[in-house]
Design a binder for these strands. Structure first.
Lengths: 165, 165
DNA sequence: TTACGTGCAAATAATTTGCAGTCCC
DNA sequence: GGGACTGCAAATTATTTGCACGTAA
């Protein structure tokens, strides 16, 4: 799905890229409405009222890490009438077409990351917050030997942080 | 909780250690009953019938990656009368005292790893199987700069594998 | 029009909890 | 004996699904 599919990826391929494009929209105009519209069209999803609104919330302000519940709350706050089921559906659809990335960190809730480029995360154990690791050079010195017949689909790394007491 | 608590851990500290001790029991005698008994005592848990049996299943045959459901099935198969609730309780208690490590990999079920040393995992996307990465030299070239006031609690890395088609 | 989307409520799935009865020290 | 432990069933939490109705192409 990305550049991590080679049998023997180099360390550079594994590392985060630092700055990530927020989406795969063919051309970003800066106009949220136009951009989200095009983003949806380009993956074959109808730009409905709720998908437009959710897309706006998701991709309108840089890289974000949200759970379905969080996005639902935001939508309600923003006076966007949408149901939690639709939020789940939309997040899953966007993930399926590669516009979002799912991150599992604590078994319970699932986070969706709007940054789909190869990168890793900090997880704040206290606040359950997920943050992209800013250091673009965090990388593996050596990629493990992959078992015969398999290839690397993706590498997920989570650096769990706790407050110094 | 481990050797990963320093503000600036070295790459060696982050890497897996290759061979891991299966538990923290003061002295391993090779007698499963004696070992599990002592393991439980040493962390202040009463060696009850069900905890002994579960401990035996968990630690009796090398490093394992189990879900609550899987361990429950094994216990039933082994004619050990135990309830699923107790399996959950026991797994959580063992995790709390540091005898097990929880691994989140796909949002849904939670895996418990009997190998509590620093190491990483392969995740087979097709079979939902979790495997310790055998390569002891898989390591980070550079540890990310940790935000002010935080320290690294742990680093979880999951290398997702898919079958070559 | 007409297949695709949405909302609602019910259905699942994983896990936790309350509580009465049981067992270890 | 008494607190720790267990089992069961009910409760929670996160997420999915069935289905009648609405809406974009």
């Amino acid at each position: 799905m990305s550049d991590l599919t080679a049998g023997e990826p180099s360390a550079d391929q594994i590392s985060g890229t630092g700055r990530a494009q927020t989406s795969r929209v063919p051309s970003l105009t800066g106009c949220p409405w136009h951009d989200v519209n095009e983003m949806l069209q380009s993956v074959g999803l109808r730009p409905t009222r709720q998908r437009m609104a959710l897309g706006w919330l998701l991709f309108g302000k840089g890289d974000r890490h949200l759970t379905a519940e969080m996005l639902y709350e935001e939508a309600i706050q923003a006076k966007v009438p949408v149901s939690l089921a639709t939020v789940y559906n939309t997040l899953n659809q966007l993930t399926d077409v590669g516009l979002l990335r799912q991150v599992s960190v604590d078994g319970a809730k699932t986070y969706f990351d709007t940054n789909i480029s190869a990168h890793h995360h900090f997880y704040m154990e206290g606040s359950h917050e997920l943050v992209d690791i800013p250091d673009p050079h965090l990388m593996l010195q050596k990629v493990p030997e992959v078992p015969e017949g398999y290839e690397i689909a993706r590498i997920d790394m989570v650096v769990r942080l706790r407050k110094v007491r």
